[in-house]
Design a protein around this nucleic acid. Structure first.
Lengths: 217, 217
DNA sequence: TTGTTTATTTAACAATGTTAATTATCTTTA
DNA sequence: TAAAGATAATTAACATTGTTAAATAAACAA
């Protein structure tokens, strides 16, 4: 009785792992049932014994990728400096994750909601991921009075919009065309958001490539 | 000899028109060769006599839609007030166009570049469309010294990122869930960009729904 | 009218997601 | 241990996509 459950979980794991690997390496475009099954080591229709359809499978990945992104950011911003600089580092690390895995950006933001089977829970995870992952950093700044309380919502909104706008243009439209250019455009934009609304601006703003990763697309 | 060209243009027109109609009404998802051909009144393979493939056809639409968007903005912002308020109205009208035609947003920003056959010309039209369409408004503000010359590039960058970020989240992730909410979030964000970097801020900022269209998704 | 070029359609193929029928494998129990 | 029954996995098949090649229809020139 228990063996059955164990077996089922193991099988699901194989398919899930295969799907994640393909998504990270090649993106949604080159994902197919036959594709996944081959990597998992089974015939394609076997998938349908463990998942309702391919979307069911795809969107189980969202949870895993969200957690991976969270870890990614935490690992690269360890100090908990409680400064706006630290907050900005978290935001950049969040972006870097998607630059490293454009396929996950696709899945998170470019895929249509209908393809998730309109599952609102999944969309909520995605939509709130940036704020969720940077929550401590925001709270720290607020607690230390580096950000005016009545401005925080609009600040969050601006950061969010600018992050996804920049990612969309860069990853999907190659605008700008190089990673260095991208960072050199994005950083001052991010800096500028915090120029007003922050109580004091003693921290230096960055206009050169100080990204956390050096990978270029 | 000339009849042939005329005929060819007419045929292309039929297919192009059909494609545009489907894109505007239903979006990329429900677009197919057979779909287009049926609307055009021909068998599906006839398309291949006039276009290399379906992407060739799709991306001829980009030119037309860009022009449509330009007209849309111009019609809704007629006065040429030469103020930052006017510039912001242009930006909002540009956004409204895509809110009215989410299928065109899909085509412009969500579609993969490979699907355009990597045609850089098309991507350039898309990427520069916002700045292109709002160019006069920006120049007017600059000429009247409402914007600091050394800030204009970063301002344009911020506006661009915030516009596409907001559209992406709203159209593709239903965040926020209502049009009114969307506008009430977006407007103060846009306002805030112009609070610094603009020489004087005598103009009133808008935080209520003053959008140019009243259609809600 | 006949022959040739052009236009259009029909037939077919490969790749996709999905379902139904079939076979293989494991489990239980006599 | 071996047969019966349940479960797991595969093969076959279908519908939908984009696309190409072959066949037919239409237009036109002599």
């Amino acid at each position: 009785m228990k063996d059955k459950k164990v077996h089922e979980q193991r099988m699901k794991g194989y398919f899930l792992q295969a799907t994640k690997e393909i998504l990270k390496a090649e993106g949604l475009k080159s994902l197919s049932v036959r594709n996944i099954a081959e990597k998992a080591g089974y015939s394609y229709t076997t998938m349908y014994s463990y998942f309702q359809d391919i979307n069911d499978l795809i969107f189980l990945c969202v949870h895993d990728f969200y957690e991976e992104c969270n870890v990614y950011v935490k690992e690269r911003t360890p100090k908990r400096e409680k400064t706006i600089t630290h907050l900005k580092s978290c935001v950049r690390a969040y972006m870097d994750f998607f630059i490293q895995y454009p396929g996950i950006f696709d899945l998170f933001f470019l895929e249509k909601m209908e393809d998730f089977g309109n599952k609102k829970a999944i969309v909520d995870i995605i939509s709130s991921s940036l704020n969720q992952i940077c929550e401590e950093a925001w709270n720290d700044c607020l607690a230390r009075n580096l950000i005016k309380a009545d401005q925080i919502e609009i600040l969050k909104g601006q950061v969010k919009a600018i992050v996804f706008g920049s990612l969309l243009l860069y990853l999907n439209r190659r605008t700008p065309s190089s990673y260095t250019e991208f960072i050199n455009q994005f950083n001052p934009q991010l800096d500028r958001i915090f120029e007003t609304g922050t109580t004091i601006s003693t921290e230096t703003n960055t206009t050169v490539n100080n990204s956390l990763i050096s990978i270029k697309l």
